[in-house]
Design a protein around this nucleic acid. Structure first.
Length: 680
DNA sequence: ATAGGGTTAG
């Protein structure tokens, strides 16, 4: 008698403080031996304890062998499944509990079941649960209600959430947080901030989770100033700087281009995990700092952390930017060995191959990746487009339509751009028309820009102009520039001067655009205008973006700046270029200096052309690879007309395929011709 | 017995 009254509280204590499964099994045995198992709370405690220690099988087994279930046994198991991240199992057990009929679910049961619905975006089941919960007297239960708020938020129904939130008589920190996060996640950061203000007005203090919501809101609004002040607020209030909060700070700084602050916040983190690294890698990659991104990936591995798919997607993006095929392939191999391809990873690899010049590898991966969504299809359409295969882009588009996936504005942007890179005027007109008529997609600026480019470049300058005039939205600079380059190409000078004026009105900040405007005026001998443009350029202090080219040789990347004389192989490179120049001239090559934007003597201009970065990179590639090897060049500007002509000759002279990716598209030079058909 | 809110990607 005495022993059993003494043992009960101590067994309870033992169960709840036990820290390893072996000890728990011994306590379990003790519970059975002392007869404490017949105590109504004992099985529930054991289930919860096994679940807490990660032994879900033991928890299930205790549940199964318990003869009479009560709310505590049911809840313990359901909560265990919830922690185990099995929302479907949670709902199965919930329904089993209902059909058992002997036990009534309580606030915890409803709360966990609703959380499972949120994870599954299962609004229908959630409505049933809500009805049941509210009918059972939990209408004003703050746990049940915040689970519902979370559910609505996850399903994008913020207006529903707001309605319920307003009706809640008691709001606690979690309900406020749920609303803030909800607005952030549906892309309404201003309203998230608004909720926070209301919360403060009701004298509720935010904790670090609230701060994460606010930091994300700042990240979305691009408001680094406010982000910094929240960062300061957290420090002043001595908030817990856990890994999630610190990572969201890194991300906020990184997403908005404040990479020094991101890096600083990163270095000062108390504890880093794969996610924090990934956030920084992604920040570098998104901001075009490919080599920083890749260095961070190396550091992540040096720290003994396995990069996850998120880190690799960012690393692949970095490889794509700089044409680092060797590393991209290595990452691809790593994924094949250790990870599963999902759509995002698949698309990132496809994009990497395409942007590194390997269209066929992109395609074979596309064929192999089973699950495709509209973004993966889109990537493939865009890839064919960039490489100048408009017809293939169209056939991929048609294949996509057959699968039942609806094309969206991005799909059409890729498709129309593919047509414009291939000069497929008929196809362009047809699908542009169908885009609105059949698919109900209103053309945006980017679609118009593709069409104007396509039409004007093909010589239909008037039609292109008519299209602009028909635009409902105000034509932006991209559209006018497309028309202007058409006018320039086809010497439509009168319209050209008018369009040049339109372009100038829109205050372009791009030197290339000014050069085009100036060239159009020069063609019409409007020297006064030419002078004005140049003066304006000087006044704006516009400097030419220095051209550079990258080439991968034997797995290493080499960069060449325009007129770069510092390269260790400089003399050899110049020798090679002179030799090629000699051969080219024998074949009829005449340097085209009209795009050199300087008042210089002809021979100086000619020498400058030879110093264009892609020439240096090509020569270097030829010198350092075995005969027949394909050379891929990545260039940060557009290929100039002269380099284009010259590269065609070079491909024939050295009998090599030379692939050049410029800012607009790919050029595959082979046997004296370019895949773009001189149409770019 | 125990419950609800948080970080990175194409």
């Amino acid at each position: 008698m005495l022993s059993s009254t003494l043992s009960r509280p101590s067994v309870k204590h033992l169960i709840s403080t036990c820290r390893d499964p072996q000890t728990l099994a011994q306590i379990h045995a003790l519970v059975i031996l002392t007869g404490s198992l017949s105590h109504p709370q004992s099985p529930g405690r054991l289930i919860a304890a096994y679940a807490r220690l990660g032994d879900i099988a033991a928890a299930q087994s205790v549940f199964k062998t318990t003869s009479s279930h009560n709310v505590s046994t049911w809840n313990s198991l359901i909560i265990a499944q919830s922690r185990y991240n099995s929302p479907a199992e949670v709902l199965r057990l919930y329904h089993l509990m209902l059909s058992d009929g002997r036990v009534r679910p309580d606030s915890s049961t409803f709360t966990v079941a609703l959380k499972a619905c949120a994870q599954l975006s299962d609004l229908k089941t959630a409505e049933e649960i809500k009805t049941h919960a509210f009918g059972s007297g939990y209408k004003h239960d703050v746990f049940v209600c915040s689970s519902l708020l979370n559910l609505y938020a996850k399903c994008g129904k913020m207006d529903e959430a707001m309605k319920l939130f307003d009706e809640m008589p008691m709001k606690d920190l979690v309900s406020w947080t749920t609303m803030i996060m909800g607005f952030v996640n549906v892309g309404r950061p201003l309203e998230a901030i608004g909720i926070y203000r209301k919360m403060r007005a009701e004298s509720m203090e935010g904790d670090e989770v609230v701060m994460v919501g606010l930091i994300q809101a700042c990240a979305a609004m691009g408001d680094v100033r406010m982000g910094r002040s929240i960062h300061g607020h957290m420090i002043r209030r001595c908030m817990r700087m856990d890994v999630v909060a610190e990572t969201s700070l890194v991300d906020m700084y990184a997403k908005n281009g404040s990479l020094e602050l991101a890096h600083l916040a990163f270095e000062r983190m108390h504890c880093k995990n794969v996610v924090s690294w990934s956030a920084l890698i992604s920040g570098y990659a998104q901001n075009g700092l490919a080599s920083d991104a890749l260095q961070m990936l190396v550091r992540m591995q040096e720290c003994g952390l396995q990069p996850d798919s998120v880190a690799l997607v960012s690393a692949l993006l970095a490889c794509s930017q700089i044409g680092f095929l060797k590393l991209g392939k290595t990452i691809h191999g790593y994924i094949e060995k250790r990870l599963e391809f999902d759509q995002i990873l698949g698309t990132a690899v496809i994009d990497m191959y395409s942007k590194c010049g390997c269209l066929s590898s992109a395609r074979s991966l596309f064929d192999r990746v089973g699950l495709r969504d509209s973004i993966s299809w889109n990537a493939m359409i865009a890839s064919y487009g960039a490489h100048g295969h408009g017809k293939e882009a169209l056939s991929i588009f048609l294949e996509m339509s057959e699968t039942g996936l609806e094309p969206d504005h991005a799909t059409f942007a890729s498709l129309l751009s593919a047509f414009s890179h291939s000069g497929l005027v008929e196809e362009g007109r047809y699908w542009f028309h169908l885009m609105l008529q059949k698919f109900g997609i209103e053309p945006a600026e980017k679609h118009y820009a593709c069409m104007v480019d396509l039409l004007a470049r093909a010589g239909h300058v008037k039609e292109a102009h008519e299209l602009i005039k028909s635009m409902v939205i105000k034509p932006g600079i991209a559209v006018w520039v497309a028309l202007l380059s058409g006018c320039h190409k086809h010497k439509t000078l009168e319209l050209g001067e008018y369009v040049a004026g339109k372009v100038l009105e829109l205050n372009p900040d791009d030197l290339g655009i000014h050069a085009l405007v100036s060239n159009v005026f020069a063609a019409g001998k409007r020297w006064d205008k030419v002078g004005e443009v140049r003066k304006a350029m000087k006044k704006m202090g516009m400097r030419k973006v220095p051209g550079y080219s990258l080439v991968e040789v034997n797995g290493k990347l080499h960069a060449f700046l325009v007129e770069d004389k510092t390269h260790p192989q400089h003399e050899k490179i110049m020798e090679m270029l002179e030799r090629l120049d000699y051969e080219m001239r024998k074949m009829g090559y005449i340097p085209k200096t009209e795009f050199v934007f300087h008042e210089l003597e002809e021979d100086v201009k000619e020498r400058m052309l030879c110093n264009h970065s892609e020439r240096l990179a090509i020569a270097f590639g030829l010198l350092n690879t075995s005969p027949g090897t394909r050379i891929v060049i990545i260039k940060n500007l557009r290929v100039c007309l002269d380099c284009h002509v010259a590269t065609k000759y070079i491909s024939k002279i050295v009998n090599r395929e030379i692939v050049v990716r410029d800012v607009k598209r790919f050029h595959h030079f082979k046997d004296g011709v370019c895949s773009c058909g001189d149409y770019w």
